[in-house]
């Protein structure tokens, strides 16, 4: 998902042999108690959470770029205010998540630096380009749809500040998917050219959306431990299956074709079977060689550098006001 990088990470989270505090910690987690910043927690739990929450935060922030690309070109004022509001929400989601990571002792400056110097990962989905207006529909419908599928269970994550941030985020997400689907609906009921545009967007975004859930359970490096710690509630494959089951009927309603010749409803299980995912593409994009990786990081670096004088000026102004107030009080 937004934290796919975890699943292919190489550094190990091996925890030391169970000792007193470790067992008590696991017992609390098993009892569905929330862990709070000042509670004792295993180092691996803290590290995993900092990585997961910061990757999630980076994804929200980088995710503003592909959609921001269309704000000035939205076809109507109604679409424009909706897209602006959505992109604004994503910026807020980044903030909630960075703050949650900071409760674990991470520094905001370090987290941002890791994103800008390419050390940190973010969701592979945001390294694909938004070529037409229909892509904005497809992103809201599919990408936010997949995000919601993943984020709803995170509201029950064992770490309190992350779980509470996710509750807030999920509440806000609910309009994102609907505005996207509404765009797709308008296009698929429009002219032939508009229908083609909607189909083309589905064709390009379908598989990358399925990849958002991360590698298959067998390949996922940290899944089992995260499940034990109740950071994660469902496996990547379970969530992906739920997404396919929910989304295929929505595509059918639009009169669009999901670009998967192997897609079929299995009467026996009540689930859709779908074709094999090209994991080599996923690895490539995650490691930096997607169509837009360089562009995205460049945009973030430029925003950071261009904003430097604003950050400095605000601090200088605050200091000056402080000094004045102190002088007046003396």
């Amino acid at each position: 998902m937004y934290t796919q990088g975890l699943d292919v990470g190489s550094d190990s989270d091996r925890t030391t042999a169970p000792t007193g505090p470790e067992e008590r910690f696991q017992a609390r987690v098993d009892a569905e108690e929330k862990i709070e910043p000042r509670d004792w927690m295993p180092d691996g739990y803290r590290r995993t959470l900092i990585r997961q929450i910061s990757q999630h935060a980076h994804s929200e922030i980088v995710g503003m770029l592909p959609e921001g690309n269309w704000i000035t070109r939205a076809p109507t004022l109604r679409r424009k205010v909706a897209l602006l509001a959505k992109v604004q929400d994503e910026g807020g989601h980044g903030l909630y998540l960075y703050s949650a990571a900071e409760t674990l002792g991470a520094s905001r400056g370090d987290l941002v630096a890791d994103l800008l110097n390419g050390k940190a990962k973010y969701s592979s989905i945001f390294n694909y380009p938004t070529l037409t207006w229909a892509d904005i529909g497809a992103i809201g419908w599919l990408v936010d749809g997949a995000a919601i599928m993943n984020q709803v269970p995170l509201c029950r994550c064992s770490y309190g500040p992350y779980a509470r941030a996710m509750v807030r985020i999920c509440r806000e997400e609910s309009f994102h998917q609907r505005q996207g689907y509404e765009i797709m609906l308008a296009l698929s009921r429009g002219s032939d050219a508009q229908k083609r545009m909607a189909q083309d967007a589905l064709d390009r975004w379908w598989w990358p959306s399925l990849m958002m859930f991360g590698p298959s359970d067998g390949q996922s490096a940290h899944s089992a431990q995260s499940m034990r710690w109740k950071i994660k509630r469902f496996s990547n494959d379970e969530l992906r299956q739920r997404f396919v089951d929910a989304t295929v009927p929505q595509a059918e309603f639009l009169g669009l074709t999901v670009p998967d010749p192997d897609l079929a409803f299995d009467e026996a299980t009540g689930h859709y079977r779908f074709g094999a995912i090209d994991w080599s593409e996923f690895e490539r994009v995650l490691k930096g060689d997607g169509p837009c990786n360089r562009e995205r990081l460049e945009a973030r670096r430029k925003a950071w550098d261009d904003g430097a004088w604003v950050r400095e000026a605000a601090l200088a102004h605050a200091k000056k006001k402080d000094a004045r107030a102190q002088a007046a009080a003396a």
Partner: peptide, 19 residues
């Protein structure tokens, strides 16, 4: 005056589920 920040602002036919 920003009703478009709310999910109910968007018209999704009732036949479409899970959205």
């Amino acid at each position: 005056d920003k009703v478009y920040r709310h999910p109910t602002f968007y018209d999704i036919p009732p036949e479409v589920k899970n959205i």
